[in-house]
């Protein structure tokens, strides 16, 4: 079966800044594929190239079987996009927004009316369908945009940071809608996020992107298996110091004084580690055991925390150019 998205050596340069530095990947039909990375990693720029809104500086991409540069109209016919920032007409009602969208995509008549009702029900906005969008909350707007992107029955749906700026409850709700959308026959989802829990919750496969490059790609399990084993957090008395310990593959000193140890098998490694520490004169007050997450994968690959990146602005890219 033909892939839903193919990118080969895709690059985008803004002046002297290379926002995307040659990314290659394939998205299979029907899967949810996530681009996970910190702000400024090149996620949105990649989405803009795949959705024909930006011309790649180098490389090529096909979406739904058509080249994004050579056949943009064919691509546009087959994709739905939910942008990171709202792109609704605030003066119009939800229903009017959907109607105008449908007409722009060449739909009309009873078929369009029916489809509008269907997508409104999917995102549970029917009761407020005739209220102007400017009265909507952030979560309602996002749901309306999800609904709108489905009106013309796209084959590939792009979601750029679909839960950015939403409260946790609304986020979980939006995830449910996204899962419900996947049920639509043959729909392929490409989503970007900087929330690792979002990628873990939704994606069949994840590409971790950092500084314009894909640094890892696979299922969540595959990526986590790269770390292998388990993680032990030890809180020693005083500040912890890493030293060679039996059964420990990797050790990191955390800013809060704890030690983060990567071990193959925590059950067998823990007694030996504690013994060795005690022999070295270090008592341990608290042990936490955790399965690795995508964040740990990111730390392993970049030496930085995915979460840390959120507080710092990324390198200048499209986001800084608005």
């Amino acid at each position: 079966m033909q892939p839903a998205i193919v990118a080969e050596g895709l690059k985008k340069r803004f002046g002297r800044v290379e926002a995307v530095r040659g990314v290659s990947f394939e998205v299979r039909p029907g899967e949810i594929f996530a681009f996970l990375g910190p702000n400024g990693a090149g996620k949105t720029t990649t989405v803009h190239m795949l959705t024909t809104l930006l011309r790649p500086s180098a490389g090529r991409a096909e979406v739904a079987g058509f080249d994004v540069v050579a056949a943009p109209t064919e691509v546009r016919r087959r994709i739905g996009v939910v942008f990171q920032d709202p792109s609704l007409d605030r003066e119009l009602t939800a229903r009017e927004n959907l109607y105008i969208h449908g007409r722009i995509y060449g739909l009309g008549g009873p078929a369009l009316r029916e489809k509008i009702g269907e997508v409104l029900r999917l995102v549970e906005l029917e009761p407020v369908a005739d209220r102007p969008v400017k009265q909507f909350s952030g979560g309602m707007k996002r749901r309306l945009e999800l609904a709108r992107a489905l009106v013309h029955r796209p084959r590939v749906l792009f979601l750029d940071e679909p839960t950015l700026g939403l409260d946790p409850q609304t986020r979980a709700h939006v995830w449910d809608y996204i899962r419900a959308m996947k049920v639509e026959a043959g729909l392929t989802l490409f989503l970007t996020t900087h929330y690792m829990d979002e990628a873990e919750a939704l994606a069949d496969r994840v590409a971790i992107i950092d500084r314009g490059e894909i640094i890892a790609l696979g299922t969540v399990e595959e990526l986590i298996r790269r770390i292998g084993g388990e993680l032990l957090y030890l809180r020693p008395e005083g500040k912890g110091r890493c030293r060679p310990l039996p059964g420990v593959r990797n050790c990191r000193e955390l800013p809060d004084g704890r030690l983060l140890l990567e071990v193959e098998d925590a059950a067998s490694a823990l007694p030996r580690v504690l013994e060795a520490l005690l022999a070295g004169g270090q008592r341990v007050r608290e042990v936490t055991l955790r399965r690795p997450t995508l964040n740990d994968v990111f730390i392993r690959l970049t030496g930085r925390e995915l979460r840390d990146e959120l507080t710092r602005p990324g390198p200048a890219g499209w986001r800084g150019r608005r």
């Binding site: 959705t51 546009r76 709202p86 007409d89």
Partner: peptide
């Protein structure tokens, strides 16, 4: 308000 993007990405 972003609506222009909606038009730009339409076929």
């Amino acid at each position: 308000f972003g609506f222009l993007k909606e038009i730009l990405v339409a076929p």
